[in-house]
Structure formats: C-alpha cells, structure tokens
C-alpha cells in the first residue's frame, strides 16, 4: 500500500465552521469588558491609582506644611476644601498623598508574598513527598495565628515603620499564598499532559516553566487580587496602632488615629480617612471578585 494514498487527502475538519479563536485570556477579557460592575469599580481603582501617582499635581497644598493658626478648621475654610487637621495641614492634600502609602502597603506585601509564597508552593506541590511536607508543615505553624495578631506581633517586634510593616504583612500572606499555589500545582501535576511532557524527556525546570506555571498563575493571581484589600485594611490598622507608617508621612490609617482625638471638633473630617480606606478596599475587593468570575472559564 502506498503510504501517501493512505494519508488523509484533505484535512479532517475542513467542514467544521471556522471558529473565532479567543483563547483563555481573550475570553477573560471579553467577560470583563461585559461586566459593568467590575468595570465601574475598576475605574474607581484606576482613579485612586492615578490620584496616588499624580498627587503632587492634584494636591492643592503641601501636605507637610503645618500651621498653628489653621488647626482643625472646618470644610471650605480659606481654600482648604476639606478643612485642616490637628497640626493645621490641608486635609485634602493629605488624603491625596495618603493614597500613596495605602496603595503601597496594599500592593507591595501581596507582591512579595505572591512571589515567595507562590515559589514555595510550586516547589512543594511539584516535588511532593518530603519537600512538600517540610514546606507545608512550616506554613501550618504560621496558620496557627490569626493574621491580624501575627501582623501586629511581627511589626511590633521589628519596631514599626513602613518597610517593617510591609515585611510583616508579606510574612502574614506567604503561608496562605503558598497553600493556594501548592494546591493548584499538585492538581496540575497529576494531569496527563505533565506525564506526556516527562515522556518527551523534558527536565523538571522546563516542565514547570512551560506547563505548570501557566496553569498555576491563574488561581494564584485571583487569590492575590483578593488579598490586596485585606492588605490595605491591615496596613491601615498597623498605622493606626503606630506600627506602620510613621508620622508625619500622610497615611489614612495614621490620619484616622490622630484625628480621632478631635472627633467632637471636626466630626466630618475624622470620618474621611476611614471612608477612603473603606472605598479603596471595597473597590479592590469587588474588582477581584469580577476577575475571579471572569477567570472561571471551564477548559
């Protein structure tokens, strides 16, 4: 039998309609674009981020400039749209600048935790057995403490400050991140295409890089995005307790703490940093929910 004759003369599925190829990320993007709630809150998040970046352009006053005369003035007093704080600094400017530290404290610890925890999780999940046991049992130790308590304890031990606060938060998030990555990796590892990749003679690193990471990043990213709002809240809490950002740096948690004493003088101003924390955190949360449902593509 001649071999060419035996091979298919035409392609098997020329008849099937040519389907538009959207791919995984294409589908996710499509869903996000058609999700008004996520789009709306995403826009607010974007505004907050822009506000933080362009704070020097947006802020009407220098957020550090104190004035004994202008202490605790009400809204609209002499161009101070939102009044002033207990040291006479412009509140609006401080709120705008405060977005910087809040976002930083929200994003950096999560990024660190995602990288470190994710790496540990992938290693543990792919290596299995003893390596996995060592990594995961270590993580379990951290799990034993409530996250707020752990964050306070670590940053308290290290002595406050923005960097130490971020380190503390990162340490709090690493175990959870590691667990998510480990579960996802272990799941992928059991699938046939990993075995097929091994059968082609690929080394572990190559397999992890080309076949594991792509499948683990999704769940890890979803989880990380949900951690951002938690991180913002915790960071504000740390600052409020004096364990995070140090004065005079403008920070919402810190502002909440110092303005608290003036709650009977300027009640509205006191609520502002809290409102800012609330709005930012809930927007990140809702966006994260939107991303999660958009990424829930059944493959």
């Amino acid at each position: 039998m001649s071999q060419t004759a035996a091979l298919p003369a035409t392609f098997a599925d020329e008849t099937s309609p040519a389907e538009r190829v959207r791919g995984y990320w294409g589908t996710v993007g499509y869903r996000l674009r058609h999700d008004p709630v996520t789009l709306f809150f995403g826009a607010i998040v974007l505004l907050i981020v822009l506000m933080a970046i362009f704070a020097p352009l947006l802020a009407p006053f220098d957020p550090y400039k104190e004035s004994v005369v202008l202490r605790l003035k009400p809204w609209g007093y002499r161009g101070h749209t939102l009044g002033t704080d207990e040291l006479g600094r412009d509140l609006l400017s401080r709120l705008i600048y405060g977005a910087r530290s809040s976002l930083l404290m929200g994003l950096v610890p999560v990024a660190i935790a995602t990288f470190l925890g994710g790496t540990l999780g992938v290693i543990g999940g792919y290596a299995g057995r003893r390596v996995n046991a060592v990594i995961m049992r270590t993580m379990d130790v951290f799990y034993a403490f409530p996250s707020v308590l752990l964050a306070v304890a670590i940053s308290g031990a290290m002595g406050g400050g923005m960097v130490n606060g971020m380190t503390a938060l990162a340490l709090v998030f690493i175990p959870a991140m590691c667990r998510v990555a480990e579960t996802a990796t272990a799941q992928v590892r059991s699938l046939d295409f990993i075995e097929a990749a091994r059968a082609t003679g690929a080394g572990t690193l190559t397999i992890v890089r080309y076949h594991v990471l792509g499948n683990v990043l999704g769940p890890v990213f979803i989880y990380a995005s949900s951690l951002v709002s938690v991180s913002i809240l915790l960071a504000s809490g740390l600052s409020f307790l004096g364990l995070g950002v140090k004065p005079p740096t403008p920070d919402w948690g810190l502002m909440l703490s110092t303005l608290r004493q003036s709650i009977y003088v300027v009640p509205l101003s006191c609520a502002l940093p809290g409102a800012a924390i609330f709005v930012t955190s809930i927007c990140f949360n809702l966006v994260s929910d939107g991303i999660r449902s958009a990424m829930d593509v059944r493959l």
Binding site: G23, Y24, L191, A196, G214
Partner: peptide, 24 residues
C-alpha cells in the same frame, strides 16, 4: 494517552504543545 480533559495543557495553544517535544 486516553483523551480526556487532562491530556493537553489547557493554557497552551495546541501547536505549542506539539512543538514542546522538538523544543526540549
């Protein structure tokens, strides 16, 4: 392998799955 959802990497275009062997 037996065809199932797990036989190909779901996040990889199929031509890359095929190309993986020669690449390795």
């Amino acid at each position: 392998f037996q065809d199932s959802y797990s036989s190909l990497n779901p996040r990889m275009p199929v031509q890359d799955s095929v190309a993986f062997g020669p690449f390795v």
